[in-house]
Design a protein around this nucleic acid. Structure first.
Lengths: 216, 216
DNA sequence: TAAGCGTAATAACAATTGTCACCACGCTCA
DNA sequence: TGAGCGTGGTGACAATTGTTATTACGCTTA
């Protein structure tokens, strides 16, 4: 029995890209596509024998999060995997709350997409490793997940985040240098740059601001 | 550069099974194994140039959750993937809280284990699909999370709490003294006493421990 | 009533942290 | 091709923080 799949995306070019990826696998069957949530709901009414929906988020009329909520309400047996280019906490968390069974990024290769679909149908959840990490961070910080308000979208480099993570454990410059195999001076330099970017002047403020902005 | 891996498990048969799975890949290098958390900590002190630890949970002396917490505190750059047969919510959530970077089940095949390790080293998180689903459910229901208060019931005086609250805002000794109308010396004295009671040695640790124990 | 604790203060020292200026190399992107 | 950025490094200096010791006074409680 083939897995019957619908694709929802307002970009027809991307729909074709996904269709092509699905086409490599005999156990997957593309059934139809929709260009937004409202379109999907109509088509589902006519043809609800769908196993799984690959859902974009940013769409006119009815976005992917809202559509997911409605579909899950009306057809709880249909699995939904978000398939989007956006991986911000806000979207991830809302999609999960709306009932999504997985969250993948559009850059995914054909095999991983296939595996994710199969895993999901087998009662698991499909997740890109970077998304998985974000869900873990969200779980660790049951903070104010609700409010989106004042994130300044501060950009730290990978190295700076590593240093910041060590800082947040209460380690001294020397220990951080040891752990990352750097000179103490370089660690200080990184921290100096972090402070500038975060506009703070000591460890505690840096760590708190980083947590607030979900940088760590 | 090979990825240097340690395995922690009280069952030597299972250690060998995992070692064998790792051995298929040239980019992975098994460095050492430990039979419990305490054993691991000793061996890490001697040989800390480890990139990633595959950690069992159920172990005598020091279990995998506790060990994870300690290792993550001391060597935040070391990645830890829980590798266990138990997939109950309790364990998963506690492992995540302790700082685990992934959670896989022992039945995993060699390739998926390899992929999970690589994904984790690349800044993602490794998760079995069934585990991923549980994390999603936990995120949807933050209810189950509340409990497990392992607070050591540390008693601070009113004044110490006041000082700690100011500390937690990132204020310097001088500013705290001004705010509480004390001499700087007295503030230092209070902080010294707080450190003793909390068994910490700097502001950041004090604030974090205070928050964890709901003292502030 | 004496011991213990909380509060408050001072002094002195070592260690860590925060700031500033400057160098160098490789990569990317306009 | 050259400017900008990320990364890694050095030196110097001031400020802050962490530690230890020592004093004192009032309150509680065994």
């Amino acid at each position: 029995m083939k897995i019957k799949i619908a694709i929802v995306d307002d970009n027809s070019f991307l729909i074709n890209t996904v269709k092509e990826k699905l086409s490599f696998f005999q156990n997957l069957k593309f059934k139809f596509s929709a260009i937004n949530g409202a379109d999907l709901l109509e088509k589902l009414d006519a043809n609800q024998k769908i196993d799984l929906i690959l859902m974009d988020i940013e769409m006119p009329v009815l976005n992917g999060i809202e559509a997911t909520e409605i579909v899950k309400q009306k057809y709880p047996q249909i699995k939904i995997i978000m398939l989007t280019v956006f991986d911000n906490d806000e979207n991830i968390f809302n999609a999960i709350k709306a009932g999504a069974d997985g969250y993948l990024l559009k850059e995914i290769n054909a095999k991983d997409l296939h595996d994710g679909i199969v895993d999901t149908l087998n009662g698991g959840a499909a997740m890109n490793p970077s998304i998985a990490l974000k869900t873990l961070k969200l779980l660790r910080n049951p903070l104010d997940i609700e409010n989106e308000s004042d994130k300044d979208d501060i950009k730290l480099t990978q190295r700076e985040i590593e240093v910041l993570e060590q800082l947040s454990k209460g380690l001294s410059y020397n220990l951080i240098a040891e752990n990352l195999i750097l000179s103490t001076g370089t660690v200080r330099k990184h921290i100096e740059n972090i402070y500038k970017k975060l506009q703070v002047h000591n460890k505690l403020e840096a760590v708190q601001k980083a947590k607030k902005n979900k940088l760590i």
